[in-house]
Amino acid sequence: MNKDKIKIFLDSDLLEKYLIGSTTDQENLQVERYIALYPEVRETYEVLQENLEAFAKMHAIKAPEGLKERILAKIRSEHIGKRRFARYAIAASVAMILFAGASYFFWSENQSLQQENQIVNNKIENLEADMREQLADVRNQFIVLQNPQTKRFNIKGNKKAKELKAVAYVNPVKKLSYINVSKLPNLPENQCFQMWAEVDGKMLNLGVIQEAANKDKLVALPYADEAVGYITIEPKGGNESPTVENIVANITY
């Protein structure tokens, strides 16, 4: 069986083609397998190699003078060129990495500085706006308090909050109104006072009154002709709309 296979293989000239290097990669694999597997093929290949060398030597021609030197010079230059190229390539790569690293460092540094700058600018803007607002508020308070046309209303709480005392300042000419809540009765922990104003039929939430903080402070009331202010007792944290039965004081101005 194998003998037939070997005979067919040896008759195919594939070994000879392999010998002189004119086989394809696939054929190479096949031939190399036969050489590895069958001593007969291996032996034939060995003999063919010897024959080839002997036959080629018979055709030797003296190579021209200087060709050896040219070849050696060529190989040396390729060798050195390669080495030099590798050296340049390494140097260039290192430089690239350093440059990229530095670029990234400066970029991120710049980025964070820009962010910081933005934050600082925002803070300044907010402060400016706050200041302007407060200044306007203070000015209005001054106008209201100093103006002879300002009416002063003393407000007292109803029976639900007898201790409540507040003063409202209303100036119909300047259309400004303020309230100062000077005394509030104590409430259970889970309740608070909230101020409201009914302006043009709409109920506006003026916020929760914190006694300590609001004692010496004038709170602006939205102005309208025939507006009504209310103070109510609401659950802690304030309510979205006033609880009518818990009204403790109302201010008509």
Binding site: H59, A60, K62, K68, L72
Partner: peptide, 20 residues
Amino acid sequence: EKAISLLYENYGDTLFGVAN
């Protein structure tokens, strides 16, 4: 590189003949 020099001395003429 000495390998190339030795190869040339021993096989140069034969390979030149083959090329030719």
